[in-house]
Design a protein around this nucleic acid. Structure first.
Length: 267
DNA sequence: CTGCGGTCCTGAAGGC
DNA sequence: TGCCTTCAGGACCGCA
């Protein structure tokens, strides 16, 4: 499922493909997945492709933007001129001025695109992990005042932006922290370990172009899978041996989704 | 404030 | 083999 590293990978690749191009036609095959007025962005030059949290932004010269949320299974495929074969789950097709095509796919129809004026954006996202605002001090402040379980807190987009189940699971494993532990009960040392683990894991995951493991529909813009799933130490490792201590990785339901952890080394 | 359950949706997996 | 049921899961919403 596209989290920060996946959306960032898509952003970088897409930017090289569509910067300075225009969208000349929008085909909406699934109405609920396209919000706003497509006419606002037709034939306007794309001046940037950005990201905030798990949301991709295609920014146009006239101040409008297409927001893209991939949710669980969303994909964007870029195909050069002439190779315009839709995917089985294509819901929206964007035709570009150079004859290329963008396919927005999602089997489950949870993903969406939205046309909005940048000035009208009301974002309630927390700190971006890869920016200079993400300091140990700022992280400590967030951790110290929350009675929530640490994993729930890390996935709260209004506190820390862009982390989902995969990367919170891996970061908590790396920092040897039990996912259900209350945030404010973390020691300074644990908080520091968690802070550095988040940065290291997010950066490594971007290097490997995201995770396309079991059940993961995420693909890069060219359709290829990412590689970070080969480095999972906890996520989807239920029943396997912990690579640190040899105990069996456990799965528990937490806040509606699966938490994976080592019952011996995560305290 | 917290936390829970329902909702959207459908492929995959499990049961018989 | 095949039908039927259950489950997963990001974000959001309503309710206790």
């Amino acid at each position: 499922m596209p989290e920060l590293p996946e959306v960032e990978t898509i952003r970088k690749e897409l930017r090289t493909k569509i910067l300075n191009k225009k969208i000349v036609k929008v085909e909406v095959l699934e109405k609920k997945m396209f919000l706003g007025d497509a006419k606002k962005i037709l034939n306007k030059k794309i001046v940037d492709v950005a990201r905030r949290a798990k949301v991709l932004k295609i920014i146009f010269e006239n101040g409008y933007v297409i927001l893209v949320h991939f949710k669980l299974n969303g994909q964007i495929f870029y195909q050069e001129k002439g190779a315009t074969i839709p995917h089985q789950f294509t819901r929206i097709v964007l035709h570009l001025s150079n004859g290329a095509t963008l396919f927005f796919n999602d089997s489950r129809k949870f993903a969406w695109m939205k046309v909005i004026r940048q000035a009208d954006l009301k974002e309630k996202f927390g700190i971006e992990p890869l920016t200079k605002e993400f300091t140990l001090d700022n992280f400590l402040k967030i951790i110290k005042k929350s009675g929530q379980p640490i994993k729930t807190l890390l996935m709260d987009q209004e506190k820390i932006a862009g982390l989902g189940n995969i990367y919170t699971t891996e970061a908590l494993f790396a920092a040897k922290i039990y996912p259900f532990k209350k945030a404010k009960e973390l020691s300074e040392k644990e908080t520091k370990n968690l802070f550095t683990s988040i940065i290291r894991i997010i950066e490594t995951a971007i290097k490997y172009k995201g995770s396309s493991g079991k059940d993961e529909w995420y693909r890069q813009v060219d359709g290829k899978p990412g590689q970070y799933q080969e480095h999972f130490l906890a996520y989807q490792q239920e029943g396997k041996k912990c690579r640190r201590c040899g105990s069996i990785i456990k799965r528990m339901k937490q806040a509606g989704r699966s938490s994976y952890f080592c019952p011996r080394c995560q305290k």
